[in-house]
Design a protein around this nucleic acid. Structure first.
Lengths: 177, 177
DNA sequence: AGATTATGTCAGTACTATTGACGTAATTTC
DNA sequence: GAAATTACGTCAATAGTACTGACATAATCT
């Protein structure tokens, strides 16, 4: 079991590379960058007994206060059952509160508490520091370019979810009617 | 349980935003971009009964043929036990072969087979297409800039793992001595 | 009144990851 | 040459995140 299986294919000894027209360099960089990018908050979350899923929920509840459960599911692209445990824990620990929807009382609007806002900021801080440092290394005016690249990496039909525009408006969340 | 818990904190109704000096826009974009970036190969992997872990192993075995198990663990930053099942499946399905290390017979050098190389390419193709499309949207000369940004996002002490340099050299993997 | 919608919950499962322990073979150190 | 270390494999137990499918309740819409 240690050596070659005679029935198995022969080992290929040359490295795959960009020559195949495939952009392995950026594929790999993206993996490393995201791995380290998420490792910062992971450390903090561990102290709370939380995981990455809690972070994502906390992030979007803070970014779009008052979003409903259905909207949150749509943004995270996970199922109701996956969200349930995580959301329940965040509510039980007083990071998030639910309010009955004003127009439709079936809906539950999700809001951060002061505690939830503080944690969201604490989690975002090291990530933001990393981004700033990376942009400094790269050059100041490139920020918009990186934003445009990342946005272009998102599935076109899902770009509506992104709040880059509204991130510049302080206060209100997305398209309130 | 539906409405407010009287003991709970009050809901905060204003959105968190970049005004706090935190770069929420890019934090969020990075999440969306990576989510969609990984969704492409996930579809293909499902047909093989594989998951994301298989993809990562396959990627690095193709990028650096002959790397040892210990090196792979170091790159992936996971434990031996997490790797074991995944690697075993890839070997059993003839995507990867193990060869006894020539200098140190305790080591197992990992190589892709033709089958493993083909799958790695198939998985990378949609990701590469996405990157190319995003760079086109952004502007051609920005490729190097995006690379530099992503590289700067990686923990400095781990940049050694990155193969951007050797990606430009065709054929050989990393520092063969 | 009946259908649909929004949410919550239960049961069962899968994948990826963890820690800790132990075994074996090969290499290095003394 | 004996002892320690290293590289790898494996076993057991557990955790976090995700899934599908089913079902219940309350509110809204038709």
């Amino acid at each position: 079991m240690t050596d070659r299986n005679p029935a198995a294919g022969k080992p290929i000894r040359t490295a795959i590379s960009d020559e195949d027209g495939i952009d392995f360099a950026i594929i790999e960089l993206f993996f490393f960058a995201y791995r380290d990018f998420t490792s910062d908050p992971d450390q903090i979350l561990a102290d709370y007994g939380f995981g990455r899923a809690h972070h994502r929920v906390l992030h979007f509840v803070n970014r779009r206060p008052g979003l409903t459960v259905a909207e949150l599911l749509d943004v995270l692209k996970i199922t109701k059952q996956s969200l349930a445990r995580v959301l329940k824990q965040l509510i039980d620990t007083d990071h998030v509160v639910q309010l009955q929807g004003p127009r439709d009382r079936r809906q539950r609007e999700l809001y951060p508490t002061a505690k939830g806002r503080a944690l969201a900021l604490a989690l975002a801080r090291p990530q933001s520091r990393r981004i700033h440092a990376a942009l400094e290394d790269t050059g100041a005016p490139e920020r918009a370019l990186v934003e445009r690249f990342l946005e272009a990496m998102v599935n076109p039909e899902l770009r509506a979810q992104i709040d880059v525009g509204s991130a510049k408006m302080s206060g209100k969340s997305h398209g309130e009617h």
